[in-house]
Amino acid sequence: MNFKIASSPHTHVRRKTPAVMLFVAIACLPGIAVQTWYFGIGTLVQICLAILAAVAAEAACLKMRQRSVLPRLKDNSALLTGLLLGISVPPLAQWWVVVIGAIFAIVIAKQIYGGLGQNLFNPAMVGYVVLLVSFPLSMTLWVPPLSLVEYPVTVQDTLMLIFTGYSETGFSLAQLRVDLDGYTMATPLDTVKTALTNQQTYQEILNQKVFSEGTGIAWFEVNLAYLLGGLFLLQQKIINWRIPVAFLLTLTLFSFILHSASPDGSASTILHLFSGATMFAAFFILTDPVSASTTAKGRLIYGALVAVLVFLIRNFGGYPEGIAFAVLLANMAVPLIDYYSQPKTYGK
């Protein structure tokens, strides 16, 4: 009768890191579904490409770093990075765009820092920003909802566009974005940004087809779907409420103040919250554990900081959407935030 030695605690919660990652990926599914519904299977193709590239890059890096490849691939972190990047890329962008982004995200933003848990920046967002500044055209070519385009994009068109750059019938992506009346349609945020700089009022903008006929609604629903997924993560206690809540509240507050002050010169609070990547970012990007703050107070500060940056970039910066930049900038502040938000220890 001899016994094995082990260190306390002897009992552990059953949910391990791979499961945590998988839960996050699963929570993305409603959003992905809605996105696919409105923008076609290009989204799925991009996600698949990104995941493949990310996992391959991860495997190659682990091999080069002489780490055990398979056990580490099983932590699902590369899969999640690829997934998040794939969601962020325009559905009809050419294949090499997302592949470059995924490889950059894994190799430069993650593995070079030392792999899982060591990276300072959110890998998916690093990949996204690299693509945005390197291939600005490809990265801004968001198609309008399929129901609105003059030339309907079939599955074959999608694949052709992604892999060759032209649809089966020989149209380029730029041509496909033209609506039935010959207007080029962009995302709501894009449209607002452009129109506001052209001295149009917000009310006038809302009368534009983009909003009146569906694009706005499509983005609203996509955001709603990601909100749903996020609530699932909160309910499962996979993510902490502090970052999303701080982020959304701060964004609401700032956009409300600005919109109240200048109703014609700024987008409404609803538009800020339910267009672009707001909800996706709130629950899936900002909550990346590795690159976000980990203290209770720090999480609130971090969420609010990203919101302020997003608000500033959207309203006063050069980009219609600013989440990726805001997240990376806030990532840089995380060590500082963590250090100065140390909670009061019991009895101190």
Binding site: T17, V20, G115, G117, N240, P289, T294, T295, T345
Partner: peptide, 18 residues
């Protein structure tokens, strides 16, 4: 495995440590 900085530990600590 590698720490992913999820912060669950800080949420669980009864002494408010990190």
């Amino acid at each position: 495995q590698a720490c992913i900085r999820c912060g669950y530990c800080a949420d669980a600590c009864p002494a408010s440590l990190l």
